[in-house]
Simulated assay, not measured.
Amino acid sequence: MSNLVNVPKNGSLANTNSNANFPTLSNWFDDLFNRDLPSVFTSNFNTGMTLPKVNIKETADAFMVEMAVPGLKKSDFHIDLDNQVLSIFTETKAENEDKNANYTRREFGYSSFKRTFNLPESVNDEKINAKYTDGILSLLLPKKEEAKQKPPRTIKIS
């Protein structure tokens, strides 16, 4: 996170009530996952693939994780759970060889990523479900019964 402040040309620092210098939750998560990583680790120069962004939504019954990863097949993904750590990993290799009378051209590419998430204790890890449709990997992480939010109720006074 940067500590730089914009200084006007007159050199004075105006006191404003703007929240522009405060990080948003989204920026905080991006900084947390990408901090101090050289760009060679966060993007692949052969394919332009970057570390995919993730949407996480919590409802009363579950957490929903969506990851935009177009151009892959369902079989390209490996999803593992080990000690409440969910890992999503993919690795793709592509080779293209073109032979003509006077030349041979061969191109190859490689891309991969791995995202890991520490799951809260409230997740029922026996019922995690994943699907890949139209370039979106979706995971449903249902909560344990005791962790689900119960609707408000009125308690009568006796």
Rank of each mutant, 00 (worst) to 15 (best):
P8E: 14
N10M: 00
G11S: 05
G11V: 05
G11D: 06
S12N: 10
A14Q: 12
T16P: 02
N17H: 08
N17R: 07
N17E: 10
S18I: 04
S18T: 09
N21G: 10
F22Q: 15
F22R: 14
T24N: 04
T24R: 08
N27V: 04
D31A: 10
D31G: 09
D31N: 11
L32S: 11
L32I: 05
F33R: 15
F33D: 09
N34K: 14
N34Y: 13
N34G: 03
N34W: 03
N34I: 02
R35N: 14
F41S: 04
F41Q: 09
F41D: 02
T42L: 11
T42A: 01
T42I: 07
T42N: 07
S43P: 01
S43H: 11
N44Q: 11
N44R: 09
F45Q: 12
N46H: 09
T47D: 10
T47N: 09
M49W: 04
M49G: 05
V54L: 02
V54H: 00
V54C: 02
I56M: 11
T59K: 03
T59N: 05
T59W: 04
A60D: 15
A60T: 10
A60K: 12
D61R: 05
D61S: 12
D61N: 14
F63C: 03
F63Q: 01
M64Q: 13
M64T: 15
V65M: 14
E66I: 02
M67Y: 08
A68F: 11
P70D: 08
G71V: 04
L72R: 00
L72D: 02
K73M: 06
S75T: 15
D76H: 10
F77N: 03
F77C: 03
F77Q: 05
F77H: 07
F77Y: 01
H78T: 09
L81P: 10
L81R: 11
L81G: 08
D82R: 11
N83R: 12
N83Y: 10
N83D: 15
Q84L: 13
V85T: 15
V85R: 15
L86R: 06
I88S: 04
I88W: 02
I88C: 06
F89A: 07
E91Y: 06
E91T: 00
E91P: 01
T92I: 05
T92H: 00
A94G: 07
E95S: 14
E95N: 14
D98N: 14
D98H: 12
N100Y: 00
Y103N: 11
F108G: 12
G109Y: 02
G109T: 09
G109A: 14
Y110P: 02
S112W: 02
K114S: 08
K114M: 03
R115P: 01
T116A: 13
T116I: 06
T116H: 01
N118F: 00
P120F: 02
P120Y: 05
E121G: 10
S122L: 05
S122P: 03
V123R: 07
E126Q: 15
K127V: 06
K127R: 13
I128L: 13
N129D: 10
N129M: 09
A130L: 06
K131V: 08
Y132V: 04
T133A: 03
G135I: 07
G135A: 02
I136G: 04
L137H: 00
S138V: 12
S138L: 07
L139H: 04
L140R: 13
L141V: 03
L141D: 11
P142V: 13
P142S: 14
K143A: 09
K143P: 01
E145K: 13
E146R: 02
A147S: 15
K148I: 13
K148D: 08
